[in-house]
Design a protein around this nucleic acid. Structure first.
Length: 261
DNA sequence: AAGTGGCTTCAGGTGTAGGT
DNA sequence: ACCTACACCTGAAGCCACTT
């Protein structure tokens, strides 16, 4: 039997010290689905959209990944889709390329460029298609397109089919930016391109790719500074605004602690 | 004090090869 | 036709040193 808890002197139940942002997001999501909590929350964050009966809500929202998977083996449809949404010079020059040439153009190497399947843009490699996309605007567009296939907002509420509220849950870390790795950052520096904020990619995903009008909110522990790209809400205010009658004992205690600490 | 960049670890997705 | 193991890549996040 392990005795970490005794040796460490950390005697609290886990919930009392938990600092996992996905756990916070899961609690928020759970509460949002109960009673009148959805309208309460939307009012708190100044949601400009009306909710109708088609509303739905998601955690770890990966719409493009799943829609891509749903297309199945239709390579032709996949290429037409990319050509329509990513309207760059190099993409239009790929019309007669083979499937493998198409994949190689975007630098897919996971583990190799497939000869059979048009691979997901989420697998494109920035460091490799750098060599194949000369124009800076095209390069940036290709990066954004790829990133849009990878981002997963923590919570998304579709207030109806064409409007959404996008929630990013944060415990300690701030807003991320792209590109993320050193070699990729070097490429951006060499090209003189600015880094792209996480919320910029989210806005691009919803507006330009999915055709969904959306607002964006960060839920954070402390600090209320909103930037032009998003507004922030405090966890304590979010939880204080939500009804939780009948919740399990630990959750009631946890919420009390979160609201009053 | 807050932000940035480099480094590390972890978890998960993807396609291939090789087995049954 | 399925399954499993495998290699490779990526993003998220934490930590630390450094800058502003």
């Amino acid at each position: 039997m392990g005795d970490f808890r005794e040796l460490s002197g950390v005697g609290e139940t886990y919930w009392a010290i938990n600092r996992e942002e996905r756990q916070y997001a899961a609690i928020l999501y759970h509460l949002l689905l109960n009673g009148d909590n959805l309208p309460r929350f939307l009012e708190l964050i100044d949601c400009p959209y009306k909710v109708d009966e088609t509303w739905s809500a998601y955690v770890e929202y990966a719409y493009l990944r799943d829609a891509w998977d749903k297309i199945g083996n239709d390579n032709d449809k996949k290429r037409k889709l990319i050509s329509a949404l990513l309207n760059t010079h190099d993409v239009s020059s790929l019309e007669s390329a083979s499937v493998q040439e198409w994949n190689e153009h975007f630098g897919v190497g996971t583990p190799v460029a497939s000869t059979a399947h048009v691979q997901s843009p989420s697998r494109w490699s920035l460091a490799k298609f750098d060599a194949n996309v000369a124009d800076n605007d095209d390069f940036l567009a290709t990066c954004q397109f790829k990133w849009a296939f990878n981002i997963k907002p923590d919570i998304v509420i579709h207030t109806d089919n064409d409007h959404a509220v996008v929630i990013e849950a944060k415990c300690t870390a701030g807003e991320g930016s792209y590109p993320s790795t050193t070699p990729e950052k070097d490429i951006f520096k060499r090209r003189g391109l600015p880094y792209v904020r996480q919320t910029d990619v989210q806005q691009y995903l919803f507006k330009e790719i999915l055709g969904i009008e959306a607002v964006f909110r960060y839920v954070v522990k402390a600090g209320t500074a909103s930037t032009p790209s998003y507004q922030t809400v405090l966890w304590k205010d979010a939880f204080a605004a939500l009804e939780h009658t009948g919740a399990p004992t630990f959750l009631t205690a946890w919420l009390r602690k979160l609201v009053h600490d």
